[in-house]
């Protein structure tokens, strides 16, 4: 029995880059971030570029090692038991990321093999899952390079769902999509929540998307998690009517404010 699906405590990550021959510049991408997620919950983490959202996702995906703190997924230590964690997690990121010369079906089969799915199983499941995400069945043997960005993102969703993850990490899954594709992806995320028992961590800089999809909303700013609450509680806490106003109240900046050199470096370093 797990007390929480995701438990993050004082998680910190610092990146450094060489400056000159002997000096290094260090930038904190995450500073003592702590939060819990319940099973089946959808949590959205809002933040500008370079705020630490992708670093958080990459830490939970076992692609980074932290400089401090801990993270557990369904009771497994992310950094000490990475292989057990990897069986439970999948993700969709801003870039669809596929072997471009291979078809959607071949890319999905490749990903599925790493999760222990043999040819017979993928032969049966891939057409079904592609149909579910609204991908035309007739195009499943076409090279990925011939597909639009929206189509590629649907295949990315199919890849994540094919392995039946109990924790789905969505890192700006709708960024760069046209309005129709964005709507389709968001509708599908809602369907996943209803049909599956997945816990979803959605990192986005789209406030409306966060408000529409998530049970609770967190604000990550310059590596620090300023709050993580239901949207109504956030508005009440700051006495504001919108998330934009809440961001201003919490940070003293508007969401569209120009970023400082430090912010730029934090994004580049991460």
């Amino acid at each position: 029995m797990f007390t929480s699906a995701v438990s993050v405590r004082d998680l910190s990550k610092v990146f450094s880059r060489r400056k000159g021959l002997f000096q290094r510049r260090r930038r904190a991408a995450l500073s003592n971030v702590s939060f819990d997620m319940g099973r089946g919950e959808c949590v959205a983490i809002l933040g500008q570029n370079g705020s630490g959202k992708s670093t958080l996702v990459r830490l939970l995906s076992t692609l980074l090692l932290p400089d401090g703190g801990s993270a557990h997924i369904f009771g497994h230590d992310v950094f000490k038991e990475p292989r057990k964690v990897r069986r439970l997690v999948n993700r969709v990121s801003v870039e669809a990321s596929f072997f471009k010369k291979m078809s959607a079906a071949e890319n999905l089969a490749y990903a599925a093999r790493f999760y222990g799915m043999g040819p017979r199983e993928t032969h049966a499941k891939i057409p079904v899952i592609l149909e579910r995400v609204g991908f035309p069945s007739a195009r499943r043997n076409e090279s990925m390079e011939n597909l639009s960005r929206g189509m590629q993102q649907k295949v990315a969703l199919a890849r994540a769902l094919l392995t039946s993850p109990v924790l789905l990490l969505l890192d700006e899954p709708t960024t760069g999509l046209d309005p129709r594709s964005k709507q389709e992806v968001q509708t599908f995320i809602r369907e996943i929540r209803e049909a599956h028992d997945s816990t979803i961590l959605l990192c986005t800089h789209d406030m409306k998307e966060a408000e529409d999809l998530a049970d609770r909303i967190g604000l990550l700013d310059r590596g620090e998690l300023l709050f993580l609450e239901p949207v109504e509680d956030v508005k009440e806490r700051y006495g504001v009517g919108t998330l934009e106003e809440a961001f201003f109240a919490a940070t003293g900046r508007t969401y569209e404010d120009e970023r400082t050199e430090d912010d730029e470096e934090r994004e580049v370093f991460a």
Binding site: R86, V89, S97, F99, Y115, G116
Partner: peptide, 11 residues
Amino acid sequence: EGTIEYTFMAP
């Protein structure tokens, strides 16, 4: 190809 993160986070 950009698939490195997906491959290296697979079990």
